[in-house]
Design a protein around this nucleic acid. Sequence first.
DNA 1: TTGGTCATGTAATTCGTTACATGATTGA
DNA 2: TCAATCATGTAACGAATTACATGACCAA
Lengths: 171, 171
Amino acid sequence: MSLRHALLGLLADRSASGYDLMKLFDTSLAHVWPATQSQMYGELNRLAEAGRVEVSAEGPRRRKEYTITAQGRKELDDWLTAPTQQSPRRNELLLKVFFLNLATPEQARAILAEREGRATADHERLAALRTALESEDGPLTVNGRIALEYGLRWAEMERDWARWATGQLER
Amino acid sequence: MSLRHALLGLLADRSASGYDLMKLFDTSLAHVWPATQSQMYGELNRLAEAGRVEVSAEGPRRRKEYTITAQGRKELDDWLTAPTQQSPRRNELLLKVFFLNLATPEQARAILAEREGRATADHERLAALRTALESEDGPLTVNGRIALEYGLRWAEMERDWARWATGQLER
DNA sequence: TTGGTCATGTAATTCGTTACATGATTGA
DNA sequence: TCAATCATGTAACGAATTACATGACCAA
């Protein structure tokens, strides 16, 4: 239930409405923790009920601005220091690999080729993003670049693995 | 809903009961597609109702042996050839990285150190497994080794990234 | 005045987890 | 006979997705 912590994390930086948080998610957190609008509004209400956030202002169009409370900061801090539970490694690609012997050689090659293509495209996209970010130098960009580097290395790893695996099929 | 396809994949190789499938999951698929017993029995009933599998034999203790049908093979084949939807990349570690500026430098280093440690341990465990498998040479081991290689490269990537990120913190 | 954006919600459904329930069979 | 294993299920809950519903405000 880390959506909760993602919301607390964003609110720790500055107060915001559900709508604001939604946009922040879309622009900054979408690739590490996707969430839908329904989920967010629900979770915000639960956070408010639990005293982790409070409505600090009301604006036009029923806008509610949420501010993190001391309890909320505590929970956020506890989460940050708790051991990170490793990502549930449910992996559809590997599941297909496991059943590769049920597919024809052409199908098998296609599965790996598709992944290689996607990984290559991802890598290029992220590399371009890194180049674009190198010019900026804010305090926020440090974390961003660390996360970006993860994505780059991951894409590289998948691309190289897919190539290697394709080679393994022909023996 | 790939649990469905995992079950079909196992049944494509040989008929089995829910109990057998459970054990197969635990020994072979646990790390790519974990599933609980509840889920499996439920899904098997749904597959039977949809005509993808059928009860081919009944044994002692209410044992039901399932066999894949032509419809089931079709569905499995469709899944294998369909584009692999990329793993939902909800990643708690990266979420924490995103909020690293909210933590103290010690906390930040601890988060990365923990991941480095885990990744290193994973890598060693898988490397040992690879060595153990190198002596065998069955027809099933090809897929297995490709999947294993993925795990190895992934652990290596995370380990190296965590080291690099720790270095980035000190600038 | 009307269309776009701001803004918040509910409902239905699926997937997954944990815990509980039940009983048959086998081997020591 | 009794404990372990075989064998299948139900119930309750939480997390996530998709679709739908509603309305206020602002600018052209």
